[in-house]
């Protein structure tokens, strides 16, 4: 199968993720959409790795996964704390840092 199709899939997933981040207010959903974008990137990296015949892309994919995992830990913790203190998970409510 033509590897380019995987790239189309990655682009589609990225777009879905980006749109989700921009449109949705629920912090969990936004967060999942960010993950979706990351995974879209991973798919693209692996595909390129395959296309070019070297392992660089796969290594980067591993890095991304590690970073994503760390991000999940920190990000979910923040969201949970925010929900506890404000009884809401909406990203629009979290604007205290605004001047």
């Amino acid at each position: 199968m033509n590897p380019v199709n995987y790239l189309y899939l990655a682009a589609l997933l990225f777009t879905i993720g980006a749109a989700g981040v921009l449109i949705r207010r629920n912090a969990i959903i936004v967060f999942m959409c960010v993950e979706l974008m990351l995974n879209a990137c991973n798919l693209a990296f692996v595909t390129f790795s395959r296309m070019h015949g070297n392992l660089d892309g796969q290594i980067i994919a591993f890095f991304t996964m590690v970073v994503a995992a760390a991000e999940v830990v920190v990000g979910l913790a923040i969201i949970v704390t925010m929900f506890r203190s404000r009884h809401s998970a909406s990203v629009d409510d979290a604007n205290l840092m605004k001047l």
Partner: peptide, 8 residues
């Protein structure tokens, strides 16, 4: 005003 505090 551009810094409106909305993450999105």
């Amino acid at each position: 005003k551009l810094q409106n505090g909305y993450v999105r």
